[in-house]
């Protein structure tokens, strides 16, 4: 008897298997096959980006954010990394009966603020209430439409020698949420990195022509996203562990739980692949933005080890970074 388990939703190998074996098998079409963060649609002379994402997070309020703002920023970022200016979003809510109205109001206020901050409008919505136990407090879905203003972003443009940049400390979102979870809870200074990236991405795309590709490392984290980029390509990526920004709070939590920060989700970070010539310029533009202050070059695209991501470890060793295989679980050994 096959059952869907939590691991199928964690953004790693199992999720990709599910996508291929169920969704692609039945729904396959040219746009979907591109497997991008957003679908790129041509309507008349315009190119539009269209994306959707559902948000379930426990707890719904966490240090540095909440389910509402996260749902707005997530969709804004999925559009932005495709070179689109996010314009309109929809809001679908599934609410568990018995939820305090004040909590709902708090979430909607947060959505309002997040939409304002990222310059998008919520233009349509839907609400369903389900029986107690049928969902956990509240689930949020957002879809978004944006106009593509930068058309040269594609994995196919990536070449050996290109630089890989990440826009700040990784794993902060995951750790902030985990720190409040039952059975694991710990005190931490770490706040979620959840933030809109459209402003920064717009500035970096208009500053330099050398940007080849972007992606936000959400579920499965940096390691999984990099693996998605190299998958069945004629290049690999080498990452230098000591250059990867990890704050001490995240590092410490990882020691405690036996986690690898490279596999933790971010909600306000972007991976930028840029020609080495333009890397310095792009980096300085990113660092000027409040959401990109911690940007660093973490590695480069290489011609050898095709299809693989390699990590040069802080200790001077080397290992393959695989795609996440099921969510990381706190461990004692």
């Amino acid at each position: 008897m096959h059952k869907i388990t939590l691991s199928h939703g964690s953004g790693g190998k199992l999720m990709h298997q599910l996508i291929d074996s169920v969704f692609m098998k039945e729904l396959d079409n040219k746009t979907l096959n591109q497997k991008k963060d957003s679908a790129i649609l041509t309507i008349g002379r315009k190119k539009l980006a269209f994306t959707t994402d559902s948000y379930v997070v426990k707890p719904i309020f966490f240090p540095g954010g909440d389910i509402g703002s996260m749902a707005v920023y997530g969709t804004v970022n999925d559009l932005s990394v495709c070179g689109a200016k996010p314009l309109f979003i929809s809001l679908g809510l599934i609410i568990e009966e018995g939820l305090d109205k004040s909590i709902l109001e708090k979430i909607i206020k947060s959505i309002k603020l997040a939409a304002k901050r990222s310059g998008v409008e919520v233009v349509t919505g839907d609400t369903k209430v389900v029986e107690k136990g049928s969902c956990d407090k509240i689930f949020v879905n957002t879809s978004g439409i944006g106009e593509v203003y930068y058309r040269n972003l594609a994995v196919e443009n990536i070449r050996p020698g290109d630089s890989v940049i990440v826009s700040g400390g990784i794993g902060e979102h995951s750790i902030s949420v985990l720190s409040k979870r039952e059975g694991i809870a710990f005190g931490t200074e770490v706040k979620s990195d959840s933030a809109p990236l459209n402003g920064m991405i717009n500035r970096l795309l208009s500053s330099s022509g050398g940007v080849k590709f972007m992606r936000d490392p959400t579920r499965g984290g940096l390691a999984t996203t990099l693996n998605e980029i190299v998958r069945s390509r004629r290049f690999g990526i080498a990452v230098n562990e000591e250059d990867v920004p990890v704050t001490r709070g995240v590092r410490q939590a990882c020691e405690l739980l036996g986690f690898d920060p490279l596999y933790l989700a971010c909600e306000g970070r972007v991976i930028v692949i840029v020609s080495s010539k333009s890397a310095g310029k792009v980096l300085s533009v990113m660092r000027k933005d409040p959401n990109g202050k911690g940007s660093r070059i973490i590695g480069e695209v290489c011609g050898e080890n095709k299809g693989f991501v390699y990590l040069n470890t802080t200790s001077g060793g080397r290992r393959i970074l695989e795609m996440l295989s099921g969510d990381q679980l706190p461990r004692i050994c």
Partner: peptide
């Protein structure tokens, strides 16, 4: 785990 994580076999 440590040997793997720090890539010690390569050293």
């Amino acid at each position: 785990m440590s040997i793997f994580r720090f890539g010690l076999k390569e050293i």
